[in-house]
Design a protein around this nucleic acid. Sequence first.
DNA 1: CAAACGATTTTCT
DNA 2: GAAAATCGTTTGG
Length: 204
Amino acid sequence: MVLPLSFYTREDVVRIARELLGKVLVTEFDGVRTAGMIVETEAYAGATDRASHAWNHRRTARTEVMYASGGVAYVYLCYGIHHLMNVVTHREDVPHAVLIRALEPLEGIEEMLLRRGKQSFHPSLTAGPGALSEALGIRTVHTGYSLLGPELFIEDRGIRVPAKKIVASTRVGVSYAGPDALRPYRFYIAGNNFVSKGKGLPLP
DNA sequence: CAAACGATTTTCT
DNA sequence: GAAAATCGTTTGG
């Protein structure tokens, strides 16, 4: 089933990040379907989190969509090259979000190879936030799109990720965030080949 | 209006 | 392991 709006509008963004592991992200642009199981996420706790684009209620044209009510996508361009996709959570005016960092491909692998310009199936196809966005055709034009479909949605297909397989660590690439860089807000499935190689700071 | 920079990935040594 | 690629967003003058 497609995750309902009530999944996204809850208050605990860290819990939502953890619960997104094992869910399936699907895109269907121009009738082409691609999908993958989420294996790595990061929570960004809005105004109180220095690592967040919305830290201290920073509000710009780019981050405006983070202030929407949960259940929409926040997609932005990083390093001029990579499109990074986030799930907006919580209620209106509370700019929480979860970055999707890695997927295990499930459907439309041929199309993913085409979009990524790859010859063969390899974890680098969808391991990493920029890579998975390219594989699924997600670009900044999709920011603000509903996560309830029809072109972009997340499903629960009954995949259960045992708590013992969920690892918490620090977030990748946020060392500028001072003490907040130490928050254990990154989650991934232990042993999954499609988890990105990115590293955060060592946990205290 | 100019300039620095980034929640990354790939390639080259 | 280091460095380049590449451009929209943000910030400072």
